[in-house]
Amino acid sequence: MVAGRGSVWLLVVVIVGAGCFERCGAQLPIPARTDGFVWGTSPAPAWGGAVVVEAFFDPVCPDSRDAWPPLQKAAQHYGAARVAVVVHLFPLPYHSNAFIACRSIHTVNKINASAVYPLLEKFFKYQEGYYNQPTYTKSRATVVDEITNNLVAPIIGEANLAAYKSGFNDSQSDQATRISFKYGCARGVTGTPYFFVNGMPLGDSGSPVDYNKWISTLDPLVGKM
Rank of each mutant, 00 (worst) to 15 (best):
V86A: 13
S173H: 06
K110E: 15
P59D: 00
L89G: 07
S173W: 05
V108K: 02
F57H: 00
D35F: 11
N149Y: 11
S104G: 05
G40R: 08
H95Y: 05
G206T: 01
V14W: 00
S139N: 10
S42T: 15
S104N: 11
L71F: 07
Q76N: 14
P201W: 01
R140P: 05
S166C: 10
L221V: 03
F90S: 02
C20P: 03
M225W: 03
G223H: 03
G129K: 15
G129F: 13
K122P: 02
V143Y: 08
M200Q: 15
A101C: 05
F21T: 04
L11E: 14
V143K: 06
D170S: 04
V152Y: 03
S96H: 08
A176C: 08
W9P: 04
A18Y: 14
L218P: 02
G17N: 04
P154Q: 11
W68Q: 12
I100C: 04
C102H: 00
W68T: 09
S96W: 11
G25Q: 12
S96Q: 13
I147C: 03
R65W: 03
Q172W: 12
S7T: 13
P59S: 01
R5M: 12
R187L: 15
P62S: 11
K165H: 10
A84P: 08
G191K: 06
I155K: 05
V38F: 08
V14R: 06
N149S: 13
G49L: 01
P31T: 02
V86H: 11
Y130G: 09
P93N: 07
R5H: 07
I111H: 07
H88S: 07
A162T: 14
C61I: 01
G49F: 02
Y136V: 14
P154W: 03
Q133Y: 11
E22S: 04
W47I: 11
P201K: 04
L10N: 14
D58E: 03
C61D: 06
F123V: 02
A26G: 08
P134T: 08
I30A: 06
Q76Y: 05
N212W: 13
V209L: 00
I215Y: 06
A186E: 06
F99V: 05
M1P: 12
D219S: 09
T192C: 06
G79C: 10
S216Y: 03
W68V: 01
E54R: 02
F99L: 01
A186Q: 06
V14G: 09
G184S: 09
P69C: 03
N198I: 05
V16K: 03
V116K: 06
D204H: 00
M1E: 14
N97R: 12
Q175T: 15
T137C: 09
S114V: 11
I155V: 14
S139I: 11
T190E: 15
N149P: 02
G206V: 00
K213G: 08
A163Q: 08
K165D: 14
G36W: 04
G6N: 12
K182A: 14
A113F: 08
R65T: 07
P45A: 08
S42K: 13
F181T: 00
R140H: 10
A80H: 10
P91W: 01
F90R: 02
S96A: 09
